[in-house]
Structures are given as C-alpha cells and as structure tokens.
C-alpha cells in the first residue's frame, strides 16, 4: 500500500534520515521505534508530505506521492507529536474548522465530528475550550482531528508523550480499535517499547537516521536467541568485581548500577556457577538472580549499544 525507497533527508548538509526503506500493507499496524533524535518524526513528515525528501521515493499503491501529494493527504490522517490544536477554540470548533478545510460540510461534517469525539471519549466536553483540557484530553482531541475524514492510513507520531497512564491506555485502546475493528492501517512511532510491542504487527527499529532492524516481534527477538540475559542483585557493588565479570568467557555486555547487574552472555556459557565462584572470591554476596526472557529493549541494546530511553 505504502512504501518508502531509500528515503533520505539532510538539513544543512547533515543527514538526519538515511536510505530508509519501509512498507505498510493494507490494514497492518506498523511500529517505528527509536530513541529521540533517531529521525522518526522526519521520516513521518516526509511520508505525510509535510517536507520533501532530499532523495528517495515514497509510493502509495505504486504512485509517487512526492510529486502528487493529494491522494496520500486525502486518505491519511496524521497525529503530530505536538498538539496541533487551537487552544482558544472548543473541541467542537476545532474539529469543525479542520473538517471544513477537509471540505466536509453539513450533516457529513456534523456526523464526522460527533463520531470522532465519541471515539476518543470527549463528546461530553466538546463545548469546552481546549485550553481547559488536561494533557491527556488534548492528546485525544489531537487524534480526533486526524480521524475526522475517516483516513485509511493513520500516522501517529509519539501520541502518548507526557500524559498520565489512564489517558495513555485510552489512546492505545483507541488505536487498537481503529486497526482491528475499522481496518485502518497504522504507522505508529514511539520510543516506548511496550506501546509498540502491544500495538504493532511489525516493527522498524531506527537509530541515527537509519533502519537498523525490521520484522515481527518474534523475528526481532530471534536476534537474541543465542544469548541469555541474567539479572543479579548483590549486597554491594564493586567495580573490580564488575571488571572480572566482563572477562568471564561468553559474557558480551555488562550493565551495573547500584547493587544490580545485567549481564548478556552467550547461551550455555554456564555463567551462573562462574558468577557464584567469582562472588565468593571477592567476598560479595549474591542476594538474588534470575534469567530474563529477552525483550525488544534488549534487542535495541544489542543493536545499538545504548538504551532506548536515554
């Protein structure tokens, strides 16, 4: 349905997006995961036709959208990271304005407004000014404004940033319903791993402007199928001990903070018995340890060498 081919964008000679290739099938929910500054918003801005790519192509059903942006604008709704709303207008007035410039009118517009408000659970507060809303309500209205014209593709750019867990769940549920019940194709960007895990069928992991991994959750986790992640709690933290752990055969990465250590090691490297011996030698008591199932966070850590939320 929608694909990007070697999509790149440079600002003042600096490449912020490099050769991004991604595709979205009809009715699919796709996540674009990456830390802040990874190039997700720029990629989305290019896909939604807000900015022109420096090079590469974006195709909607085989038609280049860079030269002909009309169709993708017509069938897509964009939920920007910022609250693109008029604070001095009510929710109803905001939607009426955006609906009108989508060339909706009369009963169609009125019905669209009420459906969008109902969908995000704001119908009771529709006459209140947006500036009186909580952060979560504003975020929901931000989504409603993108749903007015019943888009086939919904592009959401970090839609849950800075809101309470309740509103966050509401938004996630809304997106899920749109995808599963209405069949809306979703492109969801976030740096919250769990949101993407929860919502998306497929994922693209982006860092420093590049797609570094892509696939279903299972496919991405399989990257770590040759590794064990072990979390260890100690009675005290000792730098020398950490350095010795790093030298154990099979250990690939060690993260230490306070009295805890996270160790990624090759599967079957008999790490636990080696750790126990080393701790005894350094007079350190192992209070607790357990082997973790790898998460997408671990995949990201494995691929980039840094945590997702930094």
């Amino acid at each position: 349905m929608l694909e990007t081919i070697n999509l790149s964008k440079s600002f003042k000679g600096k490449k912020v997006v490099q050769d991004v290739n991604l595709y979205l099938n009809n009715g699919e929910s796709v996540g674009l995961l990456g830390p802040n500054g990874a190039g997700k918003s720029t990629t989305i801005s290019m896909i939604s036709t807000l900015i022109k790519p420096t090079s590469g192509e974006i195709k909607l059903n085989g038609v280049n959208t860079i030269d002909k942006p009309g169709e993708i604008r017509r069938i897509s709704g964009v939920v920007p990271q910022e609250l693109a709303l008029y604070q001095e207008l009510s929710a109803y007035e905001n939607l009426k304005f955006f609906g009108a410039i989508y060339k909706m009118k009369g009963k169609e517009l009125e019905k669209g407004i009420q459906q969008a408000l109902e969908f995000v659970g704001l119908e009771a507060r529709q006459k209140d000014l947006v500036k009186t809303y909580s952060g979560g309500m504003k975020r929901r209205l931000n989504i409603a404004a993108a749903l007015l014209h019943k888009p086939k593709i919904l592009i959401l750019d970090e839609p849950t940033v800075g809101i309470d867990p309740q509103s966050r769940n509401h938004i996630l549920e809304t997106v899920r319903m749109l995808n599963q019940k209405d069949g809306t194709t979703i492109l969801y960007t976030s740096h919250y791993m769990e949101e993407v895990e929860q919502l998306c069928d497929r994922l693209y992991i982006m860092d420093h402007g590049k797609i570094i991994a892509a696939g279903t959750k299972a496919e991405l986790l399989s990257i770590l199928s040759t590794e064990d992640t072990i979390k260890v709690e100690l009675n005290k933290m000792d730098e020398t001990f950490v350095e010795y752990v790093k030298t154990i055969e099979g250990v690939r990465k060690v993260e230490a903070s306070h009295s805890q250590m996270k160790i990624i090691a090759t599967k079957g490297s008999n790490l636990i018995s080696k750790l126990v011996h080393l701790a005894e030698k350094h007079h350190i008591q192992l209070i607790n340890f357990h082997t973790e199932t790898p998460s997408l966070e671990d995949v990201f850590l494995h691929l980039t060498g840094s945590k997702l939320r930094n």
Partner: peptide, 13 residues
C-alpha cells in the same frame, strides 16, 4: 509554533 499550520497543509487545503 503549535504545528496547526502543518495540520492545515495536510488537509489538502
């Protein structure tokens, strides 16, 4: 600043 202009652009208006 609040990106409303961008949203207007995206409406094909």
């Amino acid at each position: 600043r609040e990106q409303v202009f961008n949203r207007i652009l995206l409406t094909n208006s």
